[in-house]
Write a protein that binds this DNA or RNA. Structure first.
Lengths: 370, 370
DNA sequence: GTAAGTTCCGTTAACGTTTACGATTCGGGG
DNA sequence: CCCCGAATCGTAAACGTTAACGGAACTTAC
């Protein structure tokens, strides 16, 4: 418990060599024979050496450059993600991170190029939203080979060699939506629909599957229609939903998983179905607020963009700082927003943007500590 | 942007004095005249001096001793809180915190003494659950006067000079419960009950008020009965509920805010009312699981004990490390657990306890955050 | 056989802060 | 006048790591 930690000097003394050699060996810098290097590594392990980060930072003072490759976005989702990243970066005591934001204007537009320039400029780590996971896989691999850790946020890029992933738990999201839908609609027979971005994206397929399986096992009176894909194109979502409403005049509920929920709501409004539909949406942004307040949207599943950003930065930083042994799979629980607690979440968001406008992290007014 | 930060030496040079004097002045150590001290402080401010934490830690290597004064508890709630604290402490890169746990066996039993010994032993900071806020107020004041920051968790101790408070948002909890209750019960007339610990505790009174106001504004068909207080006494909760069920045979729903929800459920079971009641509970622990799985409890509002612990430790540490300017009022959004997403939360908890049994911090599905 | 180049390794000065110790002044009591 | 203590300040050695430099040994090339 109270043993002083082993230092480079301890290792050097135990081997009868010098501090410089030990340092070179541990960082496989050139200038040390394979034999002594092996000895050093062994001694380090057996003595339980762990680098003193304070000393390291003090000595080298090199800052970590992190690239944040995300989306402009049509809602405030990605602004919140970036705010979370900034906030977490600011709360690091050793102030040794520098953020570089590379923001794509539209879905998939130039995301590969942005990632490539980040790699070429030799940043120390990358946080990325891989909107087209399969087309980015090769480039993420390239980063991994260049020893640049990549953390995915919101969407995973499987088999890409990425370091980790932060996202909302799809199972929890889909099944809470299913549970609520089932309870809200009651025991009558009925049809339920779901809209999503694209079944080819793992997260969306999983949400669908969780929603479907919850309905099937607990609410067999409800029949789930085939999923509607909108590919984040406003018109596509609107048109498909209009047709859906025409073809299914008895539709009882709809779960909108897509980021672009407004077109769906517009379609429901234009089809004069807003009142008779039980609508559950995803995320929270200004345009959605009136629908929630009026009760047209009974609930929305908030994906906690800020927490996603915070966790992503934290994961990356811990890895870079100490070779982080923490989990690299973070699945956040979604939040449920309804009329009653809507103000709580709005207050939060606005507090954040005010604080951001002031330029620093949020201050406290009620601190009566001397 | 790229300016090197100002150091003690910079201040000393600008005043033509020495580094030692500057240091003494900044820490109001004895041995420096009032005049030069003022000059140093002014120069420090005007040069924008901020201490280099890495150097400070490297040089002094004193560790922060933090006392964690919580409850044994009848559920796993407080175990989770402590796990969150431990986890967050372990993730601090400079490993300079030492935790001392002072755990009271029962509610309010010896909590004042525990706090006093923590103060007397001159710990650097305290995380506390003030189960009887008013009776602890004086002692917390004493800590504040002794320059020991105190962070309250789960319950606030107002006007006590405490540094900060971490808790679940009562407004969000109470009103989401109200919203769900209203939607679940539908448009029929009906009576709804609520149980809580004690209306004298701010948090519980606020939850009641939020629940009540949500019902009143959105679901006027539901009538809320007077709150039932159980004071965390098993028998009291059970008996009062039995009487409630006898006197209100048409009761439609009940919101159980108390930590001890099992007695209430037992009462409902013994009164043969489990199926006809819509029950919303609080928190998540093993004994509650079968009720949720069977559908007897439609939903439970999870207070995120782990996140509360994490945030509390973080708040305390940031204050001690850098004089933390962050907000000292953290209100967490509660999580909603239902049949569908129950497994997600159970997986989380069990993984945590496995990791804890192994002896270190959680290596997997790391947590909930912010 | 010397100059130059390699390969390996030891030494040392930083980094910014804390802390212990030494130096200087000034007043006053002997 | 000398000594002592108090008050105020300067100096220097740590803390553990990095990075640059220099030296020794040993090869290769002329």
């Amino acid at each position: 418990m109270g043993k002083p930690p082993t230092t480079l000097r301890d290792i050097a003394k135990s081997l009868g060599t010098s501090i410089g050699t030990v340092h070179r060996a541990l960082h496989d810098n050139p200038g040390v024979s394979a034999q002594t290097k092996a000895k050093v590594l062994e001694a380090a392990k057996s003595l339980g050496y762990r680098p003193n980060l304070a000393a390291r930072y003090l000595s080298s003072k090199k800052t970590l450059r992190l690239s944040v490759n995300t989306l402009q976005g049509t809602t405030s989702f990605w602004d919140e993600v970036r705010a979370g990243i900034r906030e977490e970066a600011a709360s690091i005591l050793l102030e040794n991170v520098e953020l570089e934001f590379r923001t794509c204007p539209r879905l998939g537009e130039g995301e590969e190029e942005a990632l490539e320039t980040a790699i070429d400029e030799k940043v120390d780590g990358i946080i990325i939203f891989p909107s087209r996971p399969q087309s980015l896989r090769a480039t993420i691999r390239r980063a991994a080979r260049a020893q640049i850790p990549v953390v995915c946020v919101a969407t995973d890029a499987p088999h890409s060699g990425r370091l980790g992933i932060v996202a909302v738990d799809t199972l929890a999201s889909g099944s809470i939506a299913g549970d609520l839908m089932g309870r809200f609609l009651g025991p009558k027979q009925g049809e339920v629909a779901i809209t999503l971005f694209d079944m080819a994206i793992t997260e969306h397929a999983e949400k669908y599957s969780a929603f479907e399986s919850t309905l099937r096992s607990f609410y067999p009176n409800l029949r789930l229609l085939n999923p509607i894909e909108d590919h984040d194109v406003e018109n596509e979502g609107y048109c498909k939903c209009r047709r859906l409403f025409d073809e299914h005049p008895e539709l009882a509920g709809i779960y909108v998983t897509t980021e672009a929920s407004i077109p769906v709501l517009k379609a429901a409004c234009d089809a004069n179905r807003l009142e008779r539909l039980t609508i559950i949406t995803t995320d929270l942004f200004p345009d959605l607020v009136p629908y929630i307040r009026s009760g047209a949207v009974v609930a929305t599943i908030y994906q906690r963009p800020r927490a996603q950003g915070q966790m992503a930065l934290r994961m990356l930083y811990e890895f870079l700082a100490e070779g982080g042994q923490r989990s690299h799979q973070v699945a956040l629980a979604p939040h449920l927003v309804m009329r009653g607690n809507l103000d709580f979440f709005l207050r939060r968001q606005s507090q954040e943007s005010i604080a951001q406008a002031i330029g620093e992290t949020s201050h406290d007014l009620a601190g009566d500590f001397a």
